[in-house]
Simulated scan of single mutants.
Amino acid sequence: MAFLTTDYKENKSNDYGVLPTGNYEMIIAKAQETATKNGAESLQLDLIVRNDLDGVPALAETNKKYHNRHVFMDNWKRKATSQYDMQGFQYILDAIGVPEGTQINSIDDFLSVLTGKVAKVFVKKGKNEYNGNATDINQVAPWNFSKSDYPQSNHQFKEAKQVGGDDPFANKGQAIDISNDDLPF
């Protein structure tokens, strides 16, 4: 009996290039602050093309074709003020349905408000030139966020997220009960 018989009909294209320009229904998988080696800070959003809308005919050329693809959006702190563009954040908050007048007390609260929310996002295909080399990139501006046409999300993340007891760092700062006989040294 053979170990393996080749069968390529289930192979799919591995086109991981940039997304074509258009509107995509997306979920904000992660929101975090990042910094470069030189100290330039940004708020980065990891946007994922939703995979729960494959059956919507109007999204056949966007979400169905490109579901689970990531697009990263950086909102850099302004050098002159060392502050984020708060007006840009207003577009995102409006699109994800945060009620008018809601106070957000810290950057951590802001990141929590964003994570897991859905929006329709206009993604633009552009060029980035660096050291004489031009590469295709995706660009998303805060004003390119709008309310999702499908606000109920059933998106299934490809990577399983660890919750509670499965997280090795869930009990950070608490004593661990282990005997000397269990230690390898």
Rank of each mutant, 00 (worst) to 15 (best):
V113K: 10
D74C: 05
Y24W: 11
S82Q: 15
S146I: 02
E10K: 15
K9Q: 07
F89S: 04
V113H: 02
I92H: 03
A160M: 12
F110A: 10
N23Q: 08
D136N: 13
F72S: 07
K77W: 02
P184A: 05
K12R: 09
Y16W: 09
V163P: 04
Y84F: 15
S179D: 15
M86L: 11
V118G: 04
N131L: 12
K77S: 08
I104E: 05
M1L: 02
A95W: 00
Y84Q: 02
I27A: 04
Q156K: 14
K12W: 00
H155T: 09
A31M: 06
D54A: 10
T21H: 11
G126E: 08
G88S: 08
V49D: 02
A80M: 07
S42V: 00
A175Y: 09
S106F: 06
D149R: 05
R69D: 00
I176P: 07
W143L: 04
V71L: 11
K161A: 06
V140E: 03
S153N: 13
N63P: 08
D85N: 15
N68M: 03
F3E: 14
Q152M: 12
A119S: 11
Q174M: 09
Y84C: 06
Q90K: 10
L19W: 03
T102S: 04
T62N: 10
E61P: 06
K125N: 14
G116W: 08
Q174N: 10
Q156N: 13
P168M: 05
Y84L: 14
K30M: 10
K77N: 06
Q87Y: 07
Q162K: 11
V163Q: 12
T115E: 14
D167N: 13
I137L: 02
N180S: 09
D74H: 11
Q152Y: 03
Q152K: 14
N63Y: 03
Q44D: 05
T21Y: 06
L53Y: 05
S42W: 00
I104D: 03
L93A: 09
F145N: 00
K125R: 13
K124A: 12
E129Y: 03
N23D: 13
A40Y: 07
L53C: 05
K77A: 08
I137N: 11
K77T: 09
G132T: 07
K161H: 07
F122H: 15
N131K: 15
Q174G: 01
L111D: 06
N138L: 09
P142F: 08
G101T: 01
E100C: 00
G173F: 11
K12L: 01
E159T: 15
Q152I: 13
F122S: 10
V113A: 05
G173H: 01
N131I: 04
S179N: 10
Y150M: 05
S148E: 05
L93M: 07
V18K: 04
N68V: 10
F145I: 01
S153M: 12
K64N: 06
E129F: 03
H70R: 14
Y66I: 08
V140K: 04
L4F: 08
G17H: 01
T36W: 09
Y24G: 08
S148K: 02
N138V: 03
S179R: 05
I104S: 01
K117M: 03
V123R: 12
A58G: 06
Q103E: 14
L53R: 01
L114M: 12
T135D: 11
H155Y: 13
D15I: 00
F145W: 04
N133D: 09
I48L: 15
V49L: 07
G132E: 10
F169Y: 15
D166M: 15
S179K: 14
R69Q: 12
A170N: 13
Q90F: 00
T21Q: 07
